[in-house]
Amino acid sequence: MFETIIFSLLNGLVYGLLLFLLSSGLTLIFSMMGVLNLAHAGFYMLSAYFAYSISIHLGFWYGLLFAPLIVGFIGAMVERYGLRKVHKFGHVPELIFTFGVAFLLEELVQFVWGRNQLAYNKPEILEGSLFTLFGADFPIYKMFMLIVSVVIFIILLSVLKYTRTGLIIRAAVGHPNVVGMLGHNVPLIFMVTFGVGTALAGIAGAIAGPVLGTYPGMASGLGGIMFVVVIFGGLGSLGGAFIASLMIGLIQTFAIAIDASLSDVFLLMDIVITEQTFMYDIWVTSLSQVAPLIPYLMMVVMLIFRPAGLMGARES
């Protein structure tokens, strides 16, 4: 029991921090521009592919360095020549545009790199296990992911808190119009934000590719979870996104470890569930089976009762 808790905690932490790395960029974009970037997971995938291509020529570390930069640049260009154009039509066309970009990225990746899963591997130094606990190895690479995520979190937080840029960004989150009136170049800020946001997704892609697999389906599914994090955490709140990421990472990991279903609960009350029982399949579905469902439930409930999210200041 104890070892399960420890390992679920560790795994949940790694997964949660990766989610945070992804959603921090999304939060940044969402809070500055009011656009929920549906293509965010697409940029994550794109970066993993770029990192793979660079890694086979120059090595893993160059991939980790350059892939996010390339993706950030592409992101900035998408903002400059795409999003900015539809911006004047309102939020709905913006959302639709990013949906289109997500769709296109998935096709583009297959067009360029083919449809097989790619052998994007960890570097030699990060192979192997860091320590062994109750007979289970904890891979070095996971610790590496953990450290990268935490470092990025700290950097982001200090930039937002202690620099002038951070000041502008925080102001723009709360009062986007005023920042423009104060003479800041809002289009430029938007472009940079979008670039930095997608580059953050790029970092996540470059470090997650070797463990979670680099294949055309790697974006789908993850995209949805990211929106849950951002919305659950609250608009414009990096702290909220952080808490939400960890929560979802931990809940999902723990749920997999638990095989209990409602029928077990009934059993405690001396009610036996058989195949004849009304709605049999609901009662015998185990928690580990519904684990992927929980985040969406959390999001819907949060949106109904508190649309601003856990720590958000405004609604849209």
């Binding site: 070892e3 399960t4 390992f7 679920s8 795994n11 790694v14 997964y15 007979g135 289970a136 996971k142 463990v211 979670l212 389906g217 790697m218 599914g221 993850l222 990991t253 997999i256 470890a257 580990s288 089976q289 992927p292």
Partner: peptide
């Protein structure tokens, strides 16, 4: 005897942990 959702699991570490245990 474990079933997991098809094509949706991103990280199999928790399942591997169960197998190990």
């Amino acid at each position: 005897d474990q079933l997991h959702p098809i094509g949706k699991v991103k990280d199999f570490a928790p399942y591997a942990q169960k197998i190990l245990r």
